[in-house]
Simulated scan of single mutants.
Amino acid sequence: MGQIVLKPYEDSCHEQVVQLYLAVTAKYKHAIFWWPGPEENHTNVYLAFDGEILAG
């Protein structure tokens, strides 16, 4: 694992969020996954990247 970098959520990251959701819920059937929600929430959402990979 490399250095984790936090970035604010952008609509362009939506597909990566979907892919992370699918990976997590495929492995952990009872996982709780928090979505970015409506656009007015986006300023409060940060994503954790390990290089180019969305980690959280």
Rank of each mutant, 00 (worst) to 15 (best):
L20G: 00
V18W: 08
W34I: 12
Y21E: 02
N44Q: 13
E52S: 11
W34N: 09
E40T: 09
Q19L: 12
H30P: 00
Q19H: 07
A26Y: 05
P36F: 08
W35K: 08
F49I: 05
L47S: 03
K29M: 07
N41T: 08
V24R: 10
Y46R: 14
L22R: 15
G37K: 02
V24A: 08
G51N: 09
V24P: 00
Y28R: 14
P36E: 05
N41H: 11
T43L: 13
E52M: 06
H30V: 06
V17R: 00
E39Y: 06
V18N: 07
N41I: 02
H42S: 06
F33V: 08
G51H: 05
E40L: 10
T25R: 15
H42N: 07
V17W: 01
N41G: 06
I32F: 13
H42P: 02
Q19V: 03
Y28A: 08
F33T: 01
G37I: 07
L20F: 03
A31Y: 06
N44R: 10
Y46H: 14
Q19I: 01
V18L: 15
N41C: 11
A48V: 07
L20E: 04
E52D: 13
P38F: 05
E39S: 12
W35G: 00
A48K: 11
V18S: 01
V18K: 14
E40H: 14
A31T: 06
Y21V: 01
H42W: 15
L20I: 02
G37Y: 07
E40F: 11
W35A: 09
T43Y: 14
W34F: 13
E40R: 13
W34A: 10
K27L: 10
Y46L: 13
T25F: 04
F33Y: 15
T25N: 11
T25C: 12
A31W: 06
N44P: 00
V45M: 04
T25S: 13
V24N: 02
W35M: 10
F33K: 01
V18R: 13
T43Q: 15
A31H: 06
Y46K: 14
A31N: 04
T25E: 08
K27E: 12
L22S: 12
K27R: 14
I32Y: 11
V17T: 03
E39K: 15
I53K: 15
N44F: 13
W34D: 09
I32S: 11
K29P: 08
I32H: 13
E52G: 01
G37Q: 06
P36I: 01
N44D: 11
